[in-house]
């Protein structure tokens, strides 16, 4: 309940922060020429505030991420940016309507003023941000290259747009000036938190790799031990940001713990990672025992500890099964007698990640039902095949299945399908919990 209230309070605060500069500029600033000019500048202010706040949304500060979870916040970061871009587009249409030539938008030197030059640069940065984020795979941009571009383009966008706004304010009120400075400080503090404070605190808490083993489905499990510190406790289903190239390395990768959370804080931690890109495909398999790694976490609200119910249904696809593995093992290690159903989808029997763990657990614990679903099963396969559908789930769900809690993790198309299928089965939306990991 407290979390719901905190979540709502966060949303209201966000709405206030996103609209405050626009409202102050419009209501307390100098009178605009007409309603169109006022709407144009107001929309531009909303766009600028949204882009400045984007930095805060990705800081991983627990106070900010706590009520929502990192993946919901990242989705919000991505989609509210489209709202910001729409505001900027409307601003462009309105200033074009008022006589600004289109070449002033594309050529930073066309008008010979700082205001227009900065505005044009901000537009280029915004265009590049949208193109690289919406079409990263189409542009064949690696995640690592995209991340680097994203950070610099984001900073270029707010600096240029801030300059544009500053140069256009003929006589800003002290309140508006203070607001602009405040948002600038917010961006700097967010960057300082992520780029300086976080790496510095992680550098003092290294982890050492004790095992790196191959798993089914082109995945590997890294086993880490804390080195000279107390380790960490986590809730099943949570994840950490992993750095392998040093605490100050630019790239960090979000990876779920795949071991039981029912353990001492200084016991080994396990992460299961599928070979999907440059880092997971080449760097991770090459890590030798003794290597040092750095963790930022744990994060995430995708955990049964936040959503109690009379039983749990876990639906996992591919390597998406790893957070679910942690949940299932933790509940069983706690001698939880509630019914657990794990629907585990994969391409082939040989590719069922962590298969042996589930087979062994299902043998020992009668309250766990493990249902592998194979897209391309072997000829003699007598189990479930194809995709996870409503009809398939109906075969395994108990009669009062709408009161259970559902945890879904897998590739994006599967997640979309599961949200539809569970709604079709009458499961209320607040009992369906999802974690998405392939957002760009």
């Amino acid at each position: 309940m407290v979390l719901v209230l905190r979540g709502l309070a966060g949303l209201i605060l966000y709405a206030l922060l996103a609209t405050a500069p626009a409202l102050v500029a419009l209501l307390a600033g100098p009178a605009p020429a007409d309603a169109l000019a006022a709407a144009s500048s107001g929309l531009a202010w909303v766009g600028l505030a949204i882009f400045a706040l984007e930095f805060l949304l990705v800081t991983r500060i627990h106070m900010v991420t706590g009520p929502y979870g990192q993946d919901a916040l990242l989705q919000f970061h991505r989609e509210i940016a489209l709202v910001g871009a729409a505001c900027v587009a409307a601003h462009l249409v309105l200033v074009g309507w008022r006589g600004v030539p289109p070449r002033a938008f594309v050529d930073p030197f066309a008008m010979g003023t700082v205001a227009f030059g900065a505005g044009s640069l901000a537009l280029w940065a915004l265009g590049a941000l949208l193109a690289t984020s919406l079409a990263r795979r189409l542009l064949r941009l690696s995640y690592e290259a995209w991340l680097l571009l994203h950070r610099w383009l984001g900073l270029a966008l707010v600096v240029a747009a801030g300059l544009h706004a500053h140069a256009l304010m003929a006589s800003p009120t002290p309140l508006l000036k203070a607001l602009v400075l405040g948002y600038g400080a917010l961006v700097l503090l967010s960057l300082g938190w992520v780029r300086v404070w976080k790496p510095w605190s992680q550098a003092r808490r290294p982890w050492v790799l004790v095992d790196n083993r191959a798993e089914r489905g082109r995945a590997r499990t890294l086993v880490l031990r804390p080195l000279g510190h107390a380790g960490l406790a986590f809730a099943p289903g949570q994840f950490c940001w992993l750095r392998t190239a040093g605490p100050w390395a630019r790239e960090a990768h979000p990876v779920s713990m795949s071991c039981s959370a029912e353990r001492a804080a200084d016991a080994p931690l396990e992460f299961t990672i599928k070979a999907l890109g440059d880092w997971s495909g080449t760097r991770v398999p090459g890590l030798a025992p003794g290597a040092h790694l750095w963790l930022d976490g744990p994060y995430g609200v995708f955990t049964p500890e936040r959503h109690e119910g009379p039983g749990f249904v876990f639906i996992g696809g591919g390597v998406g099964v790893t957070p679910l593995a942690s949940m299932v093992q933790t509940l069983l290690d706690r001698d939880d007698a509630r019914p657990l159903l794990l629907v585990h989808a994969a391409n082939a029997w040989e590719g069922l990640c962590l298969r042996e763990r589930f087979e062994e657990r299902a043998r020992r614990h009668p309250n766990l039902r493990w249902v592998p679903v194979l897209e391309s099963p072997p000829a003699d396969w007598g189990g479930e095949r194809g995709y996870v559908t409503a009809a398939l789930l109906r075969r395994y769900l108990p009669p009062r299945h709408t009161s259970l809690q559902y945890f879904v993790c897998g590739p994006a198309p599967m997640m979309d399908a599961m949200e539809r299928v569970l709604a079709e089965l009458g499961v209320p939306a607040d009992r369906v919990h999802t974690e998405r990991y392939d957002m760009v």
């Binding site: 949303l11 966000y14 709405a15 996103a18 609209t19 626009a22 409202l23 419009l26 209501l27 009178a31 605009p32 007409d34 309603a35 000019a37 006022a38 709407a39 107001g42 929309l43 202010w45 909303v46 949204i50 929502y68 979870g69 919901a72 989705q75 919000f76 989609e79 509210i80 489209l82 709202v83 729409a86 505001c87 409307a90 609200v301 997640m415 979309d416 949200e419 939306a429 369906v432 919990h433 999802t434 998405r436």
Partner: peptide, 30 residues
């Protein structure tokens, strides 16, 4: 939070921002 819920929140917030700004612009110019 599910994907759809986040999308709804974004749509509601976006509509709210635009409505607020247009209202303020209209008030200011009136």
């Amino acid at each position: 939070m599910t994907h759809r819920l986040v999308r709804r929140v974004v749509l509601v917030l976006g509509a709210l921002f635009v409505a607020l700004v247009l209202l303020a612009a209209w008030l200011r110019a009136a």
